[in-house]
Computed example of a mutant assay.
Amino acid sequence: MTPRLAGRRIFVTGGGSGIGAAVAHRAAAEGAGVAVTDARKDAADAVAEAIRAAGGTAVALYCDVADEQSVSAAVEGAALELEGLDGAVTCAGITRSGLTHELDLADWELALRINLTGTFLPLKATIPHLLAAGGGSVVTVGSVASLVAANDNSPAYDASKGGVLQLTRSVAMGYAEHGIRANCLCPGVVSTGLAANTVQLHGTIRVPTHSDAIAATPLRRKAVPEEMATVVAFLLSDEASFMTGAAIAADGGLTAH
């Protein structure tokens, strides 16, 4: 049987770890050529090297998703290396916490710049390539915070992830006639290196606790990144051909009540 992503060329942000790395591995295993991009180039290199060692096709590129020039260079480099693009998955993100009246403006702006602008810029740069290819699929990574308030201590994160969902819906509406689908994956609590990566790139943070979210999750556990990558691979594939503008909650039932 032909792998369901055979011949596809997928651009992945935040591909150096967590959900992004799992998406890159899964897409490559399903037959896609993958551009693994990250602001931590060494992490992207390691993921791409592991994919190639397993027989897949991958290229690693530096990409600061909040910088338009960096994003444009990464997308153009990926399109050159992979001879075009058919899809994009925006996994890069950070966490910031603090009650609204206590939150520093710098933290608010950073969360929106990385999580929301950092979704907009890769879409802006990849969509022309998808148009040239005659269509494609975009998967943004939002959060349960795209649907409900994640907790009472994350206004910047909640606002940024709510924006990701609305941006995704706008893209879905704007490009449907061109054969481009856009859907938003909304994970619950996932075991990733998000907090550690945020500290590495952006300094000390107040890390939100996940204990309450896990207690409120009917499955009573965190997900692993590979569970999210399974959903993303489906959304990238023709099996999801009639899905666009959707918010897909992969949250262990967290938003079911």
Rank of each mutant, 00 (worst) to 15 (best):
S70W: 09
A79D: 15
D86G: 13
L201G: 08
H25V: 06
S97N: 11
R221C: 09
V71S: 08
Q69K: 13
V141F: 00
R52P: 02
G84P: 13
T117K: 10
V231L: 14
G118S: 05
S72Q: 13
V59K: 06
S143L: 03
R220K: 14
T230Q: 09
A78W: 13
A249L: 13
T2A: 13
G118V: 09
S160L: 03
M1R: 03
D152V: 01
V12M: 05
C91V: 15
A111N: 10
D38M: 05
V232T: 02
R8F: 01
A216D: 12
A240I: 06
N197D: 14
I114E: 11
R52C: 09
H257K: 12
A247S: 07
A149C: 07
A24Q: 03
T230N: 09
G18A: 07
D104H: 14
G33C: 05
E177R: 00
P128A: 09
G7T: 01
S97H: 10
I94L: 15
A24C: 12
L61E: 05
P187W: 08
L165S: 03
E83W: 10
G136L: 01
I10G: 01
A247I: 05
D67A: 11
N153A: 03
A111Q: 11
L5P: 01
S241N: 10
Y62I: 04
E49H: 09
D42N: 11
D45F: 08
G87Q: 14
F234L: 09
A32W: 04
P155V: 02
A133K: 00
G193K: 14
D45M: 08
A172V: 03
E83G: 10
A50C: 02
V207E: 14
K41R: 08
S72W: 08
G253Q: 07
G93F: 13
G193M: 13
V231S: 02
M243L: 11
L130G: 00
A22G: 02
A213E: 10
V224H: 08
L61S: 02
A106Q: 13
G245P: 06
G7M: 03
G136N: 03
A79K: 04
P208D: 10
G252Q: 10
I94H: 12
I127N: 00
T37R: 01
E81L: 14
V164L: 04
I214N: 02
V224S: 08
A216V: 02
V232C: 06
A159L: 07
N183C: 15
A159K: 08
A92E: 15
T57Y: 05
T140K: 07
Q200H: 11
